[in-house]
């Protein structure tokens, strides 16, 4: 058993260490780890799921790159307003206390280090926290970067949510990224169905594992993994 004592406020809310996490449980875990009162940007795709599990008492304020703080849930039916969309161009709602601003202000907010956390997807993360998530580098690929580089560079903490293993079984946590980089040394945590990794000054520390032993994990990942710290408090602040 490599899993630490639960850090979730609802220990029964996610499965035990015997199973890898599904997408919903992974989103629930990320949501539970976001500190109360944080300003947070959730990337397009899997990270968007995190918003479903943020609890009102966490008082998290969501930022969307297209110029809004205080973004609410996805809009449906009569609440759909074509002037109110998120970064994925999905209609959303506004919460009390919301504000709107232009694009240069929105990205100054990111670049200036005012966002506490952003959660992004990834193709690969390197042992030193380099992120690759915008371009496969394939000769026929049409590159599109959007706000990924700005988010990766600007947020105080960059959490990556990804599958640990690609479809061919190779690990996406790698010694050095082979895909073109989004940002250098920017990732602070990686959430995967098999484990949570903390990128620390000492190296990559496993915080907890799901459905796999630490030895089993090390056998499939070509970067050196540090074991979980014994004490929850230390583990929680190691990052």
């Amino acid at each position: 058993m490599n899993r630490l004592p639960s850090t979730s406020p609802e220990p029964g809310a996610r499965p035990g260490p015997e199973a890898r996490l599904n997408r919903e449980d992974l989103a629930r875990l990320v949501a539970a780890d976001i500190k109360s009162g944080s300003y947070v940007n959730l990337g397009i795709g899997q990270p968007t799921l995190v918003s479903n599990y943020l609890r009102p008492e966490q008082a998290v304020t969501l930022h969307t790159e297209n110029g809004m703080l205080g973004m609410g849930p996805e809009a449906h039916g009569a609440d759909i307003d074509e002037d109110l969309i998120n970064a994925g161009k999905v209609p959303v709602t506004e919460l009390p206390g919301a504000s709107y601003f232009h694009h240069a202000d929105s990205f100054a907010m990111m670049r200036g280090g005012h966002l506490d956390v952003c959660v992004l997807g990834a193709f690969q993360v390197s042992a030193t926290g380099d992120l690759a998530n915008w371009h496969t580098g394939a000769p026929d690929a049409i590159p599109a970067v959007g706000g990924a580089m700005d988010l990766a560079t600007g947020a105080k903490d960059v959490y990556v949510m990804m599958n640990l293993f690609a479809k061919d079984g190779t690990a996406k946590l790698v010694p050095t990224c082979t895909y073109p980089l989004t940002g250098v040394g920017c990732v602070t945590r990686i959430y995967t169905p098999e484990a949570v990794f903390l990128l620390t000054e000492d190296g990559i520390r496993v915080r907890e594992t799901f459905g796999i032993t630490l030895a089993g994990l090390q056998g499939r990942v070509k970067v050196e993994l540090l074991p979980p710290l014994a004490l929850r408090k230390v583990a929680r602040t190691a990052n």
Binding site: F107, V145, G147, D150
Partner: peptide, 8 residues
């Protein structure tokens, strides 16, 4: 161009 760099 990265989006924030485009805006700036």
């Amino acid at each position: 161009v990265p989006q924030g760099t485009l805006a700036e």
